[in-house]
Amino acid sequence: MADWEPKIVAFLCNWCSYGAADLAGVSRMQYPANIRVVRIPCTGRMSPKFALAAFRKGADAVWVSG
């Protein structure tokens, strides 16, 4: 378990959280590379199906932000 790294799938709203992740970059905030971002046009686009699909594909956590 010691070197276990979680795989996190993030569904980010194009207008806020995706932009926030952009700004985190501009500000050079450092964070672990375990996240894979899927850009969606709005969190309204988020469907439970996507979360379940991500888990099925082996995600350890699903993060929806918007």
Binding site: A21, D22, L23, A24, G25, V26, R28, Q30, Y31
Partner: peptide
């Protein structure tokens, strides 16, 4: 996005 979400934040 391999800059803002990647190279800049995982230096």
């Amino acid at each position: 996005n391999i800059r803002n979400h990647d190279s800049w934040v995982h230096k």
